[in-house]
Design a protein around this nucleic acid. Sequence first.
DNA 1: GGTTACGGT
Length: 487
Amino acid sequence: SLGAPADIDKLSLAEQAYVIQLKAELRQLEAKFANPLAEAVGKKRDAAPVGNAGPPEKKARRSTFGKKFQLVCETRHLKFADLCVQVVKKYSSQFGTCDLYVTDYTENRDIWYYAPPEEQDGKERDGDDYGYSKQPKRAWPGPYGWLVLKVNVKDPHGQLVNTKVDEGDFVLLRNVKMKIMAEGAKLEGDMWRDNDNPSKINVVKLLNQDKPEIQELITRKEKYWAKRLAQHPPQPNESTKPSKSEKKRQKKQKQQEERAKTAADAARVAERNKHVRCSNEEALLMSVKDILDLDNARHTNTLPNGTSYILPFVNTQYRTKAHVVDYEPKSLGDFAVPPIPDCNEEPSPIDAMEWDVSQKYEWYFSLCLEDPSPAKARTPAHADTVKPRMWVHVRHEDAQFLFGNDMDDPQDLRTSPHLLAKLREKLCILWGNLEEKGGEGEGVASNRPFECCVQEYGIELEEEDPERARVPFGYKKLFRLFGATIL
DNA sequence: GGTTACGGT
C-alpha cells in the first residue's frame, strides 16, 4: 500500500512514523465502531468486564490503579499506559534487560498474532528444511490470537523482573510506552529508565488476586480457555514417545477393544430397528448416559496452572443406539413450522416482496432418547430405575434426511392431512406406538432402539435468561440428531 | 512526556 519498493525507500523516517500513526488511529476508530474488546472471548458482551462495568472505552470506568490504567485492547501507538497483566513468557538476558510477554485476555489487533496450532501449516521450520530437529521451539502455550503483548523491559525495572517475576505472575506495569517500531511491525510496550527519576521501578508484582482488575482478567481467561478447549480439544501429543511397555499395553488394549467391538457389533445388529439406517457405521456406539456425561468426566478441563473447571460443551459427534421415549411438540401437526426469521440477518427487500415467508415450512421438532434396557432387566423390579434421557433437536435438513426421499417437503400439516399421515407412518417406524400412548413412553413395548448420530454443541444464553446462571460460562449444551434415515 | 539494536514471537 506504500507503492513501489523504490518509493518506499524514499520515505523519510518522519513520513514512516506518520503513516504508522495514521494506521494506528484508523484501527482505533474501527475498534470504536466495532466491538470494544472484539473477538478475544467471543461475542461482545462476553468480553465486557464483569460487574456491569460497561465497555472499557467509557471514560467513567475507574480503576484502583488510577487514571492511566488501560486494558491491552485500549492501548495505542505512542500512548502511555498502566497495565495489569499476567506474564505468559519471560525471556531474560544478561544486561538487566528482558522481554515480557503479557496478557489481560483482551484483544488488540495491532499486537503480534499468535496462530493457534490448527492454523499452523508447519511451513515455518526455521531453516530446518528436512525437519531434523524434532521440536525446534517450545510450542507457544497460548493464548492464541491478538492477546499477548510484548513489553521490552530495561533496567532498573528489568532487575526486578529478572529476579522476582515468573511466568504466571500477575504484575502491574506502570507507565508503559506503547510503540510500533516501523511500518508492518507490531505494537509493543517499552519500559525504560526514567531520566528524571533513575531509580524508580515501575513493575509491581501483585501477590494477591483480590484486585477487581485481576478478577476480571481471570474471568476473561477462563472464558477464553473454556471456549477454546470446547472448540479445539487438545490433540493427544504424538511427540511424547510411549515407552516399550506402554506400547505393549496400548496394543493389548486395542486388541481388547477390537474384540469387544466385534461382539458389540453382533449384539447391536441383533437388536436394533432394521428399518432405520444410520451413517458412520464404523463409529463406536456410545450410550446416552455416556454422551450426557452427567459427572462431567469428559467436560472437565485443567489449566496449566492447575485450576480445573467444567466445560459448557465440547464440539463432538457421537453415534448411539437408543429409543424414543418422548417428543416435542406434543402434536405431530406442529412438527413443521414457518422458518424462524433470523434476527441477525438484514431482511432482504427482494425476499419480502417475492414471496410470503409464512408460505414456507420447515421441519422442526425434538426427540427424547433413552438407552435401551438390557433384555434381562426388563422386569418391573428394574423398570423403575431412572435412566438418563437426552433431548435431541431434529433440524430441517436432518429431518429431510431422516424421512428420506419419498417424503414431500413440509407444509402446514394442519391443512395437509396427506402429509400428516405420511409423517405419522414414518414416525411409527421410528418409535412404534409412542404416539398412541400420548408420548411419555413408559413401558413402550413396540419401540425398538435405532441407531443415529448425535452432535453436541453449545449456545450462549441471553443475559436475561435465568438459566444462564446455572450453566458454565453462560453456555448451554445441546444435541442435534443427524445421519439417520427411516427406510 | 521519551529511543536504543538484534531476533523472536
